[in-house]
Write a protein that binds this DNA or RNA. Structure first.
Lengths: 331, 331
DNA sequence: GTGAAAGCGCTAACAA
DNA sequence: TTGTTAGCGCTTTCAC
């Protein structure tokens, strides 16, 4: 089934069918009805591939996140999708997995499919390709991780400040030897959260003991390992974990060892998943405005998509959102 | 940039460029190099839209799930994506939200974009449209919810049996008044899990007290409400919750009331999210083979996509996977 | 081993 | 108000 067949059956030209399909007003009502009847009877659906080719617009945006399985990124995906939908767009969701190769591949696929824009939480290892993309006028919004001089809109969370607040809170409560399970130093979010840990100590005049900082990879397993190391090798009185998955692992180890929270050890984590309110005591946690991160990035993207003229040379926006510490019973 | 410009710069015809792009062997090595150089220098990327139109194949599949935010569906999405990737396909992920209108809209978008196949966890309210799709030869795999006579491959979990096992376990442990927070009766998964609850009672010769069954809508909030109702109006000694989100709500209420698990009340749930192992005592739960559901559905889909000839009239497959009860400390 | 050219299904400029 | 037609960028058949 194609537009020509519909035209033939309805006794009109393809142009008229096209007009009907696109809701253009300059078609006589009787003609429109005839065409619509044929469309209905034959179950005809316009071929968006051909339409996109002709229009040079796909009405689709691509989203590359590192992990659909993480709550953080799936909330972001949902936020972006909501915005896309409101703009009459569909979303192609890709799981970059924090692997530069996979990210690169997805960037290519999205580019080749001529998506009208991309929301990306980048590994930071494909900057040249990204730059080529941006300079070939594909609007890109970057989430969560900044890339200097990339010239695309960026939405970030103030990781450093939020991390500082969390650790400061522990210090205020009287904890002095605060173990830190942080992310990798070469991931900007990881780095910033460590800096926040340092900042808090500095501000309170407490020396940082480097031995209390372990570097994980944001995975559950590394949370386990590093909690084990911290609890075995040091006399810590509190533990601060820099993301959800590692926190799950660390929390498991603490439980398994029968260490009491908060009496024997204080526990604070970055991110605030459901279970922080299910365990006893509830967990003090840093809550990020996750949905807002996604929707803001998408809004910026659609500003550029919908108003290319005005935005094409506009200075890229950089929006920094604040996360907040939610104090509960674990420290 | 398009194939014609590349051809011009390389001093060859568009046909030759196309051959190079597609790795066809009948190009002289020297020519190939010349073309590749131009492609590299100009940052040219093939236009997949045009290619798809010409080839009448998109190398993309669509996935419609009800909620990216739920672990269940995001694991499925991941599984499908892994399989798609292995087959050289990309995935368009859509969030049906269990809303028939949204589902319908997404089905249309996917159809119009001529995806090569669809994986769907259906609301069941768009069966006519779905039927049209299937009869116009778009391969469809259905997940989690059966639709009679639809003629597409289906992958299900044996909800009824798993639910029965869970409730039987409670009965064996000596619980007699088992409150049940179930899903809506008009959702097949909801219904089956209630039936399992009944089956267990029947098998053990214990009469079912209808007052002990509350019907939620699978949301956290309805878990709270119904736990509240059950705990207020009845002297129950155990509670069985039919999905993750309701279980979170119910668990919160039990905690808030200071009711002890498992002494004062036994607690068993369908689904097995991370937090079942973080709370004390750990939660006895029904674990579904989630990843396998997704990967199996995708495998079936690609069988049809890759071997249309053989599969076009093949009897649709119906695969039923078993869930298992994982006994921990909460009952 | 390479090129010319038709055509995938649609839209839109132009003509009638 | 409607029709004719060029052309979007690519692949592929056929000819050389």
């Amino acid at each position: 089934m194609n537009i020509a067949q519909v035209a033939r059956l309805a006794g009109v030209s393809t142009a008229t069918v096209s007009r009907v399909l696109n809701g253009q007003p300059l078609v006589k009502e009787r003609t429109r009805q005839r065409v619509l009847k044929v469309i209905n009877d034959t179950n005809y659906r316009v071929n968006a591939v051909a339409r996109n080719l002709r229009r040079n617009r796909t009405h689709a945006i691509g989203v590359i996140i590192s992990n659909v399985l993480s709550t953080f990124y799936s909330v972001i995906a949902k936020a972006v999708e909501d915005v896309a939908l409101r703009n009459g767009y569909s979303m192609v969701l890709c799981n970059g997995g924090d692997e530069p190769d996979k990210e690169r591949q997805y960037l290519q696929v999205l580019h080749e499919n001529r998506v009208d824009g991309i929301v990306l939480s980048p590994t930071g290892k494909n900057n040249e390709y990204l730059r080529a993309l941006v300079s070939s006028d594909v609007p890109v919004s970057i989430i969560d991780r900044q890339i200097e001089g990339m010239g695309c809109d960026t939405v970030l969370v103030n990781n450093r400040e939020a991390s500082k607040k969390a650790v400061e809170f522990l210090i205020e409560r009287g904890y002095r030897r605060i173990g830190c399970i942080s992310g990798p130093r070469d991931r900007i979010t990881g780095l910033e959260r460590i800096e926040g840990y340092m900042d808090a100590h500095l501000k309170r005049g407490i020396p940082v003991d480097e031995k209390l900082i372990e570097y994980g990879d944001f995975s559950l397993e590394s949370g386990r390992e590093n909690a084990f190391l911290l609890l075995t090798n040091n006399d810590i009185d509190a533990i601060y974990v820099a993301n959800t998955d590692m926190a799950i692992g660390a929390y498991q180890v603490i439980k398994e060892r029968g260490i009491g929270i908060p009496d024997e050890i204080g526990f604070v984590m970055f991110d605030d998943p459901d279970w922080t309110r299910l365990v006893t005591p509830q967990v003090t946690a840093v809550s990020q405005p996750v949905y807002t991160i996604g929707s803001t990035a998408a809004d910026l993207l659609f500003k550029r998509i919908n108003d290319r003229r005005n935005y094409i040379d506009k200075e890229p926006a950089k929006i920094v959102l604040e996360a907040k510490l939610i104090v509960r019973g674990s420290a």
